[in-house]
Design a protein around this nucleic acid. Structure first.
Lengths: 143, 143
DNA sequence: GTTGAAAAGTGAACTCG
DNA sequence: CGAGTTCACTTTTCAAC
């Protein structure tokens, strides 16, 4: 992982469908050399994959929330992961400092759908109660 | 935006570098037809672009936090956006319900770097104080 | 890094409801 | 006409050197 690898990653972050020739131009390599870098970065796990950046609103998903999860007793992180992965509206989850056990990022079609999804989170075993913060407007997203 | 468009998007979410022939196979179209769908979805804004999914840890970014921002007086959302975009460690920002004005998602190399970045957020005009939740471990991320 | 065969991308002409 | 297909032609991929 040198400076060129980082610039290769930079190219692919800004355009995940860039051709190897384009990447090579940007970092000063031939197309096959650029491909070998990308292959190596994928094999090493630095690049997990490629994806489209989709506007959730265009798909009719306009509701978004961050939900703190409080558990009963002690729960192992991997157990919590298994539980929370059952709810497709949970797009991200992490354990955090503070009194909550986990913080979830959730997306849904509307507030009604969001409420139903949070209900499902609360119904998971181990989950005692939740505390939600609804997103009013997304200011920006650099990911 | 019909059912086929949604399946095309599904293909590209799981593999942003899928060929048009692969997409076509999955949704029952020829490669040129699949390409026209993708072009149309890009033009309409439903697909904003394509990107690599990078493991932040592989780049040495291991610290992550969610930071609630409390402002002085009333601040227009676009003003807040301009302020917060100045800090590169802020990878996402939104306005939220509750007593905080905004919730930030931040990434940094380590806790020391994270602290310095939060300091810079606090130094932005309009920002009164912040309240941070440090991420202990990411359970999963579906984006 | 260079080369060349195989694969994918891409526009045009054409067909169907 | 909008949306699909096939076909020709260019560009890209990718393995061998």
């Amino acid at each position: 992982m040198d400076i060129i690898d980082q610039r290769v990653i930079g190219c692919l972050l800004s355009d995940g469908r860039a051709t190897y020739a384009q990447i090579g131009d940007q970092v000063g390599l031939s197309a096959p050399a650029a491909k070998r870098r990308v292959d190596r970065l994928r094999a090493s796990g630095a690049i997990r994959g490629f994806t489209a950046v989709v506007d959730p609103a265009a798909l009719g998903w306009t509701a978004e929330a961050y939900v703190e999860v409080y558990c009963r007793g002690t729960v192992a992180p991997h157990e919590l992961r298994q539980s929370l992965e059952q709810v497709p509206e949970v797009v991200g989850a992490c354990t955090v400092t503070g009194s909550a056990d986990a913080l979830l990022h959730m997306l849904a079609k509307d507030n009604r759908h969001l409420e139903a999804a949070i209900e499902r989170v609360r119904d998971e075993p181990n989950v005692d109660h939740t505390e939600s913060v609804i997103v009013l407007s997304r200011l920006f997203d650099r990911r």
